[in-house]
Amino acid sequence: MEQACRDLRLPTVRTRFEDMLTVAHKEQLTYEGFLADLLLAECDDRARRRSIRRVKAAGFPRQKWLADFDFDANPNVNPATINSLASCVWVRKGEPLCLIGDSGTGKSHLLIGLGTAAAEAGFRVRYTLATKLVNELVEAADEKMLVKTIARYGRVDLLCVDELGYIELDKRGAELLFQVLTEREEKNSVAIASNQSFSGWTRTFTDPRLCAAIVDRLTFGGAIIETGTDSYRLAQTRAAAQAAS
């Protein structure tokens, strides 16, 4: 029995067989009922393992869950909007998402949380920092691997780009980033988090036409969530300091 389960790659059946058999005897299940429960347990466990692998493959720097987001601390963020996005309909449609706000307002938390929800729902997700992505594209271009690299980023269902706008990008880097966005346009979703309002993106993308084109790619048909300017992380730190004093 054990070796057969190993050969057939049925780890859940192998480890849970005895316990589920005992339950089946107590509940007087039919052979068909016992077999159905055993196979369903295997299927459920496989789905759970696939979900874990997809979340790990996304490359998130830390775990963030939407359920842990403090909506009371940031009233700028509408819970109904986030719950709607958590359904991942926008990912299925290939629509973009922009999270705009100052540091400490929950942009990265929401970006990672929504990316995690998408991965758990079965979508292929990739997380990266904007500067890391641009550096990778520049290196790929230098090594004549740009087409392959852009295609790789084009295949994921959701590309999460964090910290867009923190550092000025030169024209070459901005143009390469634009190529990635163009590859994904109206096919696969892009979600970005930025500490700059769109009017301030000219400091990141110094070419006005390119800046306008990138904004267009990231906003057309998508959702824009403004997380505000008041850092609730700073507020929590101050509150903790006052409580300790």
Rank of each mutant, 00 (worst) to 15 (best):
P208I: 15
A36E: 11
A41Q: 11
L129Y: 12
D45R: 13
E183T: 05
S231K: 01
L39A: 13
A58G: 14
A239T: 05
A58F: 14
E226F: 02
V180I: 08
P79N: 03
L158V: 11
V180H: 03
F60W: 08
L35C: 14
V156L: 07
R124D: 13
C160F: 12
N74S: 00
K144D: 15
A213W: 06
V77T: 02
E175V: 00
C160N: 10
T22I: 14
K132A: 09
R54G: 06
L210E: 08
N78W: 03
A151D: 10
T219F: 04
L169E: 00
C160G: 11
D37S: 13
R217I: 09
S87P: 00
T22N: 15
R54Q: 11
L39F: 14
E168S: 12
R172Q: 11
P61N: 11
N83R: 08
P79D: 01
L39Y: 14
V13C: 08
R9Q: 07
D216Y: 07
K56G: 12
E175I: 00
L97C: 12
G165C: 01
C211L: 10
K144Q: 15
R209A: 14
R16H: 03
G221W: 07
P11W: 09
F198G: 04
A213C: 11
C160H: 09
R217L: 09
L114R: 06
R16W: 02
V180Q: 04
L10C: 02
E120I: 12
A67G: 04
L176Y: 08
K64T: 11
L133R: 10
R16Y: 02
V55A: 10
Q179W: 05
Y166V: 05
A239W: 03
F71H: 01
A130S: 11
R50F: 14
H109F: 12
L159C: 06
T116I: 11
E185T: 11
F71D: 00
V156A: 02
A67C: 05
T227S: 06
Y232K: 01
I52Y: 14
G154N: 03
S245N: 12
H25I: 13
A80L: 03
A57Q: 10
A243G: 04
C88R: 02
L159K: 07
A223P: 00
I224H: 04
P61C: 07
A117P: 09
A130D: 05
Y166F: 07
A140W: 07
S108R: 02
M20E: 10
F205S: 10
T15W: 05
G115D: 09
L39H: 15
V147G: 07
V125D: 01
D142W: 14
L159V: 07
A141R: 14
R172W: 05
A191K: 04
I167C: 03
V215R: 04
G106P: 03
V161Y: 08
A193I: 06
V161I: 14
V156Q: 02
T204I: 10
F34L: 10
R50T: 15
A240C: 03
L164G: 03
P61K: 11
K64Q: 14
T30C: 14
T105W: 01
I52W: 15
T22F: 13
L114E: 07
W201M: 12
N83Q: 03
H25L: 13
A86K: 04
G173A: 00
G165S: 04
